[in-house]
């Protein structure tokens, strides 16, 4: 029986509260600030889940670049004004969400406990292979880097292709053909 550490509980609860704020705050600038705080909270949660590479990427990309993109967007468009601080609750959406959440909650009980030694991912042959052979075969100490750049190198090439395609799409949509 494993229990989740108090730090992780606090950080995830903080992330959930900021996510609630980002969803329900009426002013878009407030929502973007709450979303940036949410990304930072999640980055700390990745660190506590022993995923420092994901934490660095989340802090740089999720909290950094994404927030800048959102801020540039509202600088070029509008912030809906209004006297209310929070959005009114949309009950039709609540019904849709209740169906999804209810369906997912029925599956939670059959998942392995968080941090269990015998969970399917922890005991998987793939995990053992990467941890056992990554250093000998690639010479990289960080197994995440070894898998990202060597074993799944084509996957990362595909990711780079997506980034290039997205950059071109942004330039075309914003009619900045001079740069394409």
């Amino acid at each position: 029986m494993t229990a989740i550490t108090a730090e992780l509980t606090v950080v995830l609860t903080f992330a959930l509260l900021t996510a609630v704020a980002a969803t329900f705050l009426r002013d878009v600038l407030n929502a973007i600030i709450a979303f940036a705080a949410f990304s930072f909270g999640i980055a700390v949660a990745w660190l506590l889940l022993a995923a420092p590479d994901v934490a660095l990427t989340e802090a740089a990309v999720g909290a950094g670049i994404t927030t800048v993109f959102f801020l540039v967007t509202i600088a070029k468009t509008v912030r809906p004004g209004g006297e209310r601080l929070f959005e009114p609750i949309a009950w039709r959406s609540v019904a849709v969400v209740a169906v999804l959440v209810g369906a997912l909650l029925t599956t939670v009980r059959s998942l392995p406990a968080v941090g269990a030694m015998n969970s399917p991912v922890a005991t998987s042959r793939i995990t053992e292979y990467y941890l056992g052979n990554a250093y000998d075969q690639t010479g990289v100490e960080n197994a995440v880097t070894a898998v990202l750049a060597a074993y799944r190198g084509f996957d990362t090439l595909g990711e780079a292709t997506v980034v290039i395609a997205a950059g071109l799409a942004v330039l075309l949509v914003l009619r900045q053909e001079a740069y394409v």
Partner: peptide, 10 residues
């Protein structure tokens, strides 16, 4: 995630 597991720097 494994309880008490280290980041995968092997």
């Amino acid at each position: 995630y494994i309880d008490g597991g280290s980041p995968p720097v092997v």
